[in-house]
């Protein structure tokens, strides 16, 4: 009996000895993933898809917390001021990260965040109504030059990526258009279909249903290369307009996040992106999976932010 317990103690001691160095960082309480927009929005869907796909790799619950307000900047500000302990994360990469801070003062900057990984990128497509005499970017530029300042575009709000995209484009093309802000992408699309504006912008998944029904013309997209979803739609770059902006979604945490926490979160979420759950949901939702690691994601956001910043400053 005595010998047995000594053996047990010894085994335990050895186990502890070997286990200790292996236990890098492991979460011990629920991880909160903050979303700066209401439930049901594009950012929210990405967060919930990622949680559904990645949960099995985490020993603790992943909780999506919607903290909507001020175009996503309230949540971004909140997370930037949390401790970098890995328990407060943010879904970033969209307007709140790259566009809004260039249009108005916010109490955070990209420097306050450390990228974890990028999950998707969303192209931005210029759209006109079917039956309108604007069928290509060329038509648009010609018409805008002929009727200077008469054509109007709908954006998803002042300071958003869609607004910035049009600022960049009109500058590159040397045209003048009216800006009519709407509350989000759906009302903007409704305004286009109702004939209340001439142009709007859309994400591929928003545009697809309208394209299939023959309701809209896709004029061009703002990426460096074409998309598989609409291989016939040219990029603005090809047409000679230097406009490169994309919407992205990924995970970031406060800048003070240490390396081991970053590595853990990055690896687990990456595993989530390789699951069938992620592939099925992203596929069905027409989300373009596009992985980048933390530093690259942050660089990508930095590039976009600088592009927009330069364009806004020149106004």
């Amino acid at each position: 009996m005595k010998r047995l317990s000594i053996a047990a103690i010894l085994t335990l001691a050895v186990a502890v000895l070997f286990a200790a160095p292996a236990s890098a960082w492991e979460p011990t309480k629920p991880i909160k993933i903050y979303v700066g927009f209401s439930p049901g929005g594009g950012t929210d869907i990405v967060a919930r898809t990622l949680v559904a796909a990645s949960q099995e790799f985490f020993p603790v619950p992943l909780v999506v917390v919607n903290k909507p307000g001020a175009g996503g900047t309230i949540a971004a500000d909140f997370v930037s001021k949390q401790e970098g302990d890995g328990y407060s994360l943010l879904v970033a990469g969209g307007s709140e990260s790259t566009s809004v801070p260039n249009h108005r003062e916010v109490s955070y900057s990209l420097d306050n965040f450390r990228g974890v990984l990028r999950n998707i990128r969303a192209r931005i497509i210029l759209v006109s109504k079917a039956g309108s005499d604007i069928k290509t970017i060329d038509d648009l530029v010609k018409k805008a030059k002929a009727e200077s300042g008469k054509l109007a575009y709908a954006s998803s709000g002042a300071g958003t990526l869609y607004h910035s995209t049009m600022l960049l484009f009109t500058k590159a093309a040397g045209i003048d258009m009216k800006h009519v802000p709407y509350k989000g992408g759906s009302p903007a699309m409704a305004a286009l279909l109702g004939g209340h504006v001439d142009i709007t912008l859309a994400a591929p998944e928003e545009a697809q249903a309208q394209v299939e029904a023959g309701q809209v013309n896709l004029l061009g997209l703002t990426s460096t290369e074409r998309t598989d979803l609409f291989p016939d739609v040219p990029t603005l770059k090809e047409l000679g307009y230097d406009v490169y902006l994309e919407n992205q979604k990924g995970i970031v945490g406060p800048a003070s996040m240490p390396d081991d926490v970053y590595q853990y979160l990055h690896d687990k979420f990456k595993m989530g992106m390789d699951t069938k759950v992620w592939q099925k949901m992203a596929g069905k939702l027409k989300l373009e999976t596009s992985y980048l690691n933390g530093p690259d994601f942050k660089d990508a956001m930095g590039t976009m932010s600088k592009t927009i910043g330069d364009a806004v400053k020149g106004l």
Partner: peptide, 26 residues
């Protein structure tokens, strides 16, 4: 029209897309 008028219908639209149903005029 595939244009949701309020937040709950926007979510229903995503749910339908997950099911592989493309909403809209067709």
């Amino acid at each position: 029209l595939a244009i949701p008028g309020d937040p709950p219908t926007a979510i229903l639209l995503s749910a339908l897309m997950i099911q592989g149903v493309t909403v809209g005029p067709l």
